[in-house]
Amino acid sequence: MPRYALKIEYDGTPFSGWQRQADQPSVQGAVERALSRLESDVPSIAAAGRTDAGVHALGQVAHCDLRKDWDPFRLAQALNYHLKPDPVSVVACARVGQDFHARFSAHERRYLFRLVSRRAPVTHDRGLVWQVGHPLALAPMQAAARYLLGRHDFTTFRASLCQAASPVKTLDALEISEHPYPGGAEFRFHVRARSFLHNQVRSFVGTLERVGAGAWAPEDVKTALEARNRAACGPVCPPQGLYLAGVGYDPDPFGDG
C-alpha cells in the first residue's frame, strides 16, 4: 500500500485534541473521516505528536497508507474538500517510503506559543493567544529561559499524568521575542527539542510569564528546575496560545529543508 505524509494545520478550538475519541470531536477523527470518503477501510493514521484540547497546529505531520496510487497534490485537494467545514487543512502531501513514520522518524519538534499583554480583550485573536492584562519584561524572561536549555531532569515541568518513560529531555532552543500588538505587546516563545513531556511547553511559558511580570526572579527558574518537584513549577498556562509549529525529518518529505 502506498504511504503518504500529510502536513496539517488546524485550529484546535473545537476539538478535544488530536487523538481520536469515541464521544468527542478530534482532529484525527476529522482527517480519518475525510480519508474514508476517498477509500473505505483506511487504516488508522499516525501523527508526530498528540496535541491537547485547544492546542493548534501550523505543521502537524501524519502518515497514512492507501490502496490507490494517488497524485499527492490531488490527494491533498480531495482531503481538503472533505474536511470542510472543520478548521483543518492539508497544506502539503508527499509520497514516502514504508520506512517513514510520522512519529518515530521525527528528529525534532518545534512549538510556538503566543502570549499577548494588553488590558483590552483581544478580538481577532480570541482563542488563538493567551492574554494577560499586565505588562511583561522581555529581558528577564530571556535570562530565565537560558537555565532551561540543555539536558535536564524536567520533573518540575512535567504533568503528573505524563506517560513518558523518563523526565530527562534535551531542550535545544527556547527563544522569546517581543512584537508590536495594538494596545499592547505580543511575546512569542519558539521552543525546539526532539521530544517533549506532557504540558512541558505550557509549564515553561506559565513559569516564564511570572518572571516577566516581576513575581519571580530569573534565578528562581533555575531553583525550580533543580527541585525536580512539580510543586515548584509556576502556573501552567492555558492551551489557546500553543501551536505545533513544525516537525523535522531527514530527509524532509515535503522538501522544506
Rank of each mutant, 00 (worst) to 15 (best):
L244H: 02
D252F: 08
N80K: 07
P2H: 06
R188T: 14
F154M: 10
N80Q: 05
V61C: 05
A34Q: 03
A232N: 12
H101G: 01
A46S: 14
Y243M: 06
G150W: 14
Y4C: 00
Y147G: 14
N229D: 15
Q200G: 08
A57C: 11
L138V: 06
A46V: 13
P180L: 08
R37M: 12
A46G: 09
S40D: 12
A5I: 03
G12M: 00
L35F: 10
D220G: 05
E178H: 13
V61M: 03
P167E: 09
S36Q: 11
M141W: 08
P235N: 09
H134R: 15
P235Y: 07
D69H: 10
I8Y: 04
Q77R: 15
K169Q: 14
P235G: 08
F189W: 12
V247Q: 02
T223S: 14
A120Q: 11
E219M: 10
S16R: 09
V116N: 08
D153F: 05
R188V: 15
G29V: 04
A185C: 13
F204D: 03
A213S: 15
R146I: 13
E108F: 06
G206H: 05
L75G: 02
L6T: 02
T156E: 10
P251T: 00
A34F: 03
Y10K: 01
G183D: 02
R210G: 07
G59D: 08
A106G: 00
L112E: 12
G212M: 08
N229P: 06
H56N: 07
Y147H: 15
A47T: 09
D256Y: 12
F73Y: 14
D65I: 08
R126L: 11
G133Y: 10
Q131R: 15
R114E: 10
L112S: 12
K169H: 13
Y111A: 03
D23P: 02
L161R: 12
D256N: 15
V201C: 09
Y10C: 03
P87N: 11
G184H: 09
Y243I: 04
R158E: 14
H124V: 12
D11M: 03
W18C: 04
P135L: 11
G49W: 07
W70A: 00
A164T: 11
L58T: 11
H107G: 05
S89T: 15
D23G: 05
L66G: 07
S105E: 01
G241N: 10
A245G: 05
